[in-house]
Design a protein around this nucleic acid. Structure first.
Length: 570
RNA sequence: GCGCCCGUAGCUCAAUCGGAUAGAGCAUCGGCCUUCUAAGCCGAGGGUUGCAGGUUCGAUUCCUGCCGGGCGUGCCA
């Protein structure tokens, strides 16, 4: 049950009754503890529209009480403060215990495509892929959890000019008798070596350009080399996904090249069926009024280049077409950097005109800011200075191992390693997810891998405290009345009951930091409760253990929705 | 030039889409481990929310103008 929605319904019903008009009660969680548990803010607005005194209106609303499970009180200019009765809270907690969804009401199931991670296979995954991969994976997990039908779309870049020099380099290595598999182990170095050759050696550059043509014309030898490179590169990224607990599987990959055969069709459909295509300077373009470039000139969406090649606009349109027609998606979410905003706007606009996006579908760009260095400058994409994602992950695990060894030296090596992995990976993901996704991200080892405060380890640690209690308690059933009396118990209980609200707010704009904030508050309230209220051996041990149990279930589930694991001790 | 985004405590970030006295963490300072894991808890200091106007009972939030920063702006992705 969503208490906020319950209160909203109840009070809005009453407000409509006394005002005769359809005013919402606007119920929100109380901002300060002295204001109770929730507050209704809609009375002031309603009173203004009715030209009435807000406090008078509030008085009517408050006195219009039948048997309500909450107390109301007028405050300030016309707020209504709402305090839930402890019986109500206890009953709601009881109901929650048997609910595998922890209070969430499943919405109507939709088919949702999430386009995320989508690395360029010509490069090794680097820190820039952290955001799309972590955010996308979390959104997928949350949407799936509440019952939607998810398609993970890993739209990897496996086509285009950058493969020319890679293939030429592969060819050259084979000719000189070097082991390809050895060289491909470090893709980043491989790419750098190839691009260095491209710059330095004119013959090589010529060969590379040749390879692009050969690749695009489907030359069998060339395709064979290409396939070898791609499968090696995919293997690399799957290792990163597995290490980093990302749910993307090989089968989630639908690469750019998968749309190759559709590209001429897209061009043809845009031209003949929709008359959208215009030739301009030799390129086939779609001009839409809403896009203006420099000097107010019309800005084209280039579908086919003057040399006959297809830019990613074409591929993205083909992908939209596929997602609509074949996948029949209700919703498509693109977890892509903010710098692609204009591009995606164009894709969506052209796709709508072409009927690749239907009126009842929602295509949405979930943008995120860039990864910056400490000095605020941008991580460059082609100078080879990018930090490999796998290195970040490994360093996090190392740091976590050092910390757990210090904090809990008595654990066995294998236990420490297991904990270090869970804590290290959790820290990186949480550092990313706990921030508003739309702002830029400053990459800082120390900050990212600090394990204090509002971090994954804090939540994971709270969880282990609870698990430790249950290990000590040695009980196998938790049957008994829930009795909450202490302030710390009430506040914790209320937060427990707000899990559905947290999930819903998170999904309003797909902001994982809302869920992070909720889990952090939950853990904080638990730790306060833990300090203030004795649990084992106390007069209401069972009731308190029930609170502990619910807290741990939510932390575990909530972290899982963020792609973060828990351990039993740390 | 034009379009979009951002500017909140020394630092990193919140503020549930207009609500009450702008909150956390880090850092600084002080207290709490012979009792359930101190990766914890309790407390203190720290703010003209870039600036100036406007809208209204009420603005970090909406509007206008400035200042500062970023990204994008026809054949890379």
């Amino acid at each position: 049950m969503n208490i906020q929605q319950f209160l909203e319904r109840e009070l809005t019903k009453d407000l409509v009754k006394i005002s005769g008009k359809n005013f919402p009660a606007i119920v929100k969680p109380a901002q300060r503890t002295e204001f109770g548990h929730y507050q209704a803010n809609g009375i002031m607005g309603a009173a203004k529209a009715l030209k009435q005194n807000p406090r008078e209106l509030a008085k009517k609303l408050v006195s219009n009480t039948q048997a309500r499970p909450f107390e109301t009180e007028i405050a300030g200019p016309g707020f209504i403060n709402i305090t839930l009765k402890t019986d109500f809270i206890a009953d709601a907690l009881s109901a929650l215990r048997s609910d595998p969804l922890l209070g969430i009401t499943k919405p109507k199931s939709l088919k949702i495509v999430v386009d995320y991670s989508s690395p360029n296979l010509a490069k090794e995954m680097h820190i820039g892929h952290l955001r799309t991969t972590t955010i996308g994976d979390s959104i997928v997990r949350i949407l799936e959890y509440i019952g939607h039908d998810l398609v993970r779309a890993n739209h990897v870049g496996d086509w285009g000019a950058q493969f020319g020099s890679l293939l030429a380099y592969m060819d050259q290595l084979t000719e000189t008798g070097q082991s390809l598999s050895t060289e491909l182990k470090d893709l980043e170095r491989f790419y750098q070596a190839a691009s260095a050759l491209f710059k330095k050696n004119q013959d090589f550059a010529e060969k590379a350009r040749n390879y692009v043509v050969k690749l695009q014309s489907g030359d069998p030898n060339c395709i064979e080399l290409w396939k070898q490179f791609i499968s090696e590169s995919i293997r690399h990224s799957q290792v990163v996904y597995k290490t980093f607990d990302i749910t993307l599987a090989n089968s989630d990959i639908r690469a750019e090249s998968a749309y190759n055969d559709d590209l001429p069709t897209v061009v043809q459909e845009l031209a003949s069926e929709h008359s959208l295509l215009v030739e301009s300077d030799g390129a086939k373009c779609v001009f839409l009024d809403e896009f203006k470039g420099k000097d107010q000139k019309p800005l084209p969406a280039i579908i086919q280049k003057s040399d006959g090649g297809y830019p990613y606009m074409a591929t993205d349109l083909a992908a939209a077409r596929y997602r609509t027609r074949v996948l029949k998606a209700n919703k498509v979410l693109y977890v892509v950097g903010v710098e692609q905003q204009l591009h995606l706007k164009q894709v969506f606009a052209v796709a709508k005109k072409a009927g690749y996006i239907q009126k009842d579908q929602e295509y949405k760009h979930l943008s995120f800011g860039m990864v910056l260095k400490e000095d605020g400058s941008r991580f460059k994409t082609r100078d080879g200075a990018d930090v490999k994602l796998i290195d970040v992950v490994n360093e996090a695990i190392e740091r976590a191992l050092a910390l757990v060894s210090k904090k809990n030296p008595s654990l066995s090596i294998s236990e420490k390693q297991k904990i270090a992995r869970v804590v290290g990976i959790g820290s990186i993901k949480y550092a990313e997810l706990s921030k508003n996704r739309t702002t830029d991200y400053i990459f800082d080892w120390d900050r990212m891998l600090s394990f204090e405060g509002n971090t994954a380890p804090y939540l994971q640690y709270s969880y282990t405290r609870i698990r430790s209690l249950f290990r000590r308690a040695e009980i196998n059933s938790l049957e008994g009345k829930i009795e909450i009396t202490e302030e710390a118990e009430i506040r914790l209980s209320l937060k427990i009951l707000q899990f559905p609200e947290a999930i819903e707010s998170t999904l309003e704009d797909y902001q994982a930091n809302v869920l992070c904030g909720y889990l952090y508050e939950l853990s904080g309230l638990f730790n306060t409760f833990y300090e203030r209220c004795p649990i084992l051996g106390s007069y209401n041990q069972t009731s308190r253990l029930i609170l502990c149990d619910l807290t741990s279930r939510i932390i575990k589930q909530g972290l899982e929705l963020l792609g973060i694991k828990t351990v039993e001790q740390m």
